[in-house]
């Protein structure tokens, strides 16, 4: 199969959808002729023009609220935030308007809006360009939250987002945007709420999210040399969350570690752990462990930045600790 980068895979999905559906448009800073800071829209401006690849002023609350109104009146906006940290200026529009509109209108209004942006820690981007925030959005009723880890999932989930009628947070970790992988050609959609088993194994279950998937797989490769058989699950979407696949795996392995770059308190790992305790308590042979990024704002200096992100060696040690329980 041909290979694409992660960002090329999402752009292919966007291009195919825009070619078919004239109601799809993209807004953001520098997403027009420039093609986006992360090349998310490169080449599309010449095909679809300035109304459908609409450069905006730095006015996040304004254009998110505007896109909410557009989504309510027959078009399908894609908001490209560049860095997802910028979404926070629009938080009220998202929480009070975008997430609640379908419910408040008893389903008579739809809210087909995609909110995409680069997440994650790396490259000394420092504290205003390194956030992820998905546990916050997954906490709220009304949002779909996708955090794909590989190019084919990026295409498949973006396609699903483009064809649905719900608000979707589509979050792309900066460290994997230019990774290459096999991506199916043509139409390719992956339903929300279906986890991917990234590696099958029998000794323990590792749930890894976003950029942590690749690091966790690398740690597993190393431990496999010692005979450790770990199963790695990539949920792909945080909301909805495919608990069935996780519970099935824990039933088999009896041990669970959740690896997530975002903060531990009130986080995705806490939710997964609580649900496994509720529904799979008898399957557990050991306490559930979590490995998260440190609960601090993101510092700039490389040694400080490295210290807050789970590294491959940290994951390896956490797996050893889990198996030693």
């Amino acid at each position: 199969m041909r290979e694409l980068t992660y960002v090329d895979a999402t752009r292919e999905a966007l291009d195919r959808a825009m070619a078919r559906d004239p109601s799809i448009f993209v807004v953001g800073e520098g997403i027009g002729a420039r093609g986006g800071n992360f090349n998310t829209t490169s080449g599309l401006y010449t095909k679809y023009g300035p109304e459908r690849l609409c450069d905006t002023p730095i006015s996040e609350r304004g254009f998110v609220g505007m896109c909410a109104g557009a989504a309510m009146t027959g078009t399908r906006p894609v908001v490209d935030f560049m860095f997802i940290d910028f979404i926070l200026d629009a938080f009220g529009e998202l929480v009070n308007q975008v997430a609640k509109m379908q419910y408040m209108s008893s389903g008579r209004l739809k809210m087909p809006i995609i909110l995409r942006g680069a997440i994650g820690i790396g490259h000394s981007a420092a504290t205003h360009h390194s956030g992820s925030y998905y546990p916050i959005f997954a906490h709220l009723p009304g949002f779909r939250v996708a955090v794909p880890a590989i190019p084919s999932d990026a295409k498949g989930l973006f396609t699903t987002a483009l064809h649905g009628d719900d608000p979707v947070l589509f979050l792309e970790h900066k460290s994997i945007l230019f990774n290459r992988g096999e991506v199916p050609e043509g139409d390719y959609a992956i339903p929300f709420g279906q986890a991917r088993i990234a590696r099958a194994g029998a000794d323990c279950t590792l749930v890894a999210i976003g950029s942590m998937v690749g690091k966790t797989l690398a740690a597993c490769d190393k431990l496999a040399e010692e005979g450790v058989s770990a199963e790695v699950i990539d949920p792909r979407t945080i909301a909805p969350l495919d608990m069935a696949t996780i519970l099935e795996s824990v039933h088999k392995t009896g041990r669970l570690l959740i690896v997530d770059e975002t903060f531990q308190p009130c986080g995705v790992g806490a939710e997964i752990a609580a649900q496994v305790i509720d529904q799979g308590f008898d399957d557990l042979d050991a306490p559930i462990h979590r490995l998260n990024g440190a609960h601090v704002p993101t510092p700039y200096s490389p040694p400080l930045e490295n210290a807050i992100v789970p590294q491959e060696s940290d994951i390896e040690q956490s797996i050893r600790d889990l198996l030693a329980e």
Partner: peptide, 17 residues
């Protein structure tokens, strides 16, 4: 406040369509 932005958004839809 949000109604102001949403009316602009409806305007964007209507212009695009």
């Amino acid at each position: 406040g949000p109604c102001i932005l949403q009316a602009a958004g409806a305007g964007y839809s209507f212009k695009l369509l």
